[in-house]
């Protein structure tokens, strides 16, 4: 399925997520058209990761409507396993802590989900895995275990593992936060290529430079709400909201 630019791949309406008494996300709406790269920035605890995790229902919002690739769910009404599987099929996700399966080789990490989720044969899956390993610059790492890979390599494997399922949108949850700056760069390079290839991406990040260079739109969150959004050239250089200015100053000073 290919989507023409302009169609929303992800559409969030009035999302509200609470953890006990704490409201992590308050009534947030966000549209992500096909091909767009959205960077979500903001101070820690602003709810950006929680919002991202609501898209593929790793978190179940208390209120709101989630539409991914034309499939709408209202999680507070309950979501069947089939609906969940269908929704997640189109959405790839990359975590801060990589979350590779340590007991499987790099190649198996990428092939197993293809076999189980898409029903590909082992041969088909391995062929696709090798192709993606090459794309992320790790063609020689297939037989290695994750523990034998650097953090940057593990994160690139995690990207390949998500891409192997042919997602229509990729979610990145602070993909470089656990990495040394140098290793972070090799991950960002892969993400840049992905963006250049037209992948729809939602990236929660502290990498302001990456947001400036790659994102089509920057969304700033604070206290569970979107406080400002727009093209990076505007939001990052001439923000209008005081809270955004304060946050950007703090990030630049680091």
């Amino acid at each position: 399925m290919t989507l023409t630019t302009g169609t929303s791949v992800v559409s969030l309406r009035g999302i509200r997520k609470e953890f006990g008494d704490h409201v992590a996300v308050r009534d947030v709406s966000l549209e992500v058209p096909a091909g767009e790269v959205v960077a979500i920035i903001g101070p820690s605890g602003s709810g950006k990761s929680t919002l991202l995790r609501c898209i593929n229902l790793l978190e179940r919002p208390e209120a709101g409507r989630i539409e991914v690739l034309g499939q709408a769910v209202e999680p507070q009404g309950g979501v069947s396993a089939a609906e969940l599987a269908k929704l997640r099929r189109g959405v790839g996700m990359v975590f801060q802590s990589f979350n590779l399966f340590p007991h499987l080789t790099v190649l198996r990490n990428i092939s197993l989900p293809q076999e189980r989720v898409l029903g590909r044969s082992r041969k088909e899956a391995d062929a696709r895995s090798l192709q993606l390993l090459e794309r992320v610059g790790l063609a020689d790492k297939g037989a290695s275990y994750p523990s034998r890979c650097s953090g940057g390599q593990q994160q690139r494997v995690a990207i390949a593992r998500a891409l192997a399922l042919d997602p229509q949108v990729m979610l990145f949850d602070e993909p470089t936060s656990a990495l040394d700056p140098e290793l972070g760069l090799e991950v960002l390079a892969v993400m840049r290529e992905l963006a250049a290839d037209g992948m729809t991406m939602v990236v929660v990040t502290h990498e302001i430079q990456f947001a400036a260079d790659v994102a089509d739109r920057v969304v700033v969150m604070a206290d569970g709400a979107i406080i400002e959004q727009g093209p990076p050239s505007v939001v990052l250089t001439a923000p209008t909201v005081e809270r955004t200015k304060k946050f950007l100053r703090a990030v630049m000073d680091r």
Partner: peptide
């Protein structure tokens, strides 16, 4: 969580 996000049952 990663397995769930990948769509595995």
């Amino acid at each position: 969580e990663a397995a769930a996000a990948l769509g595995m049952s």
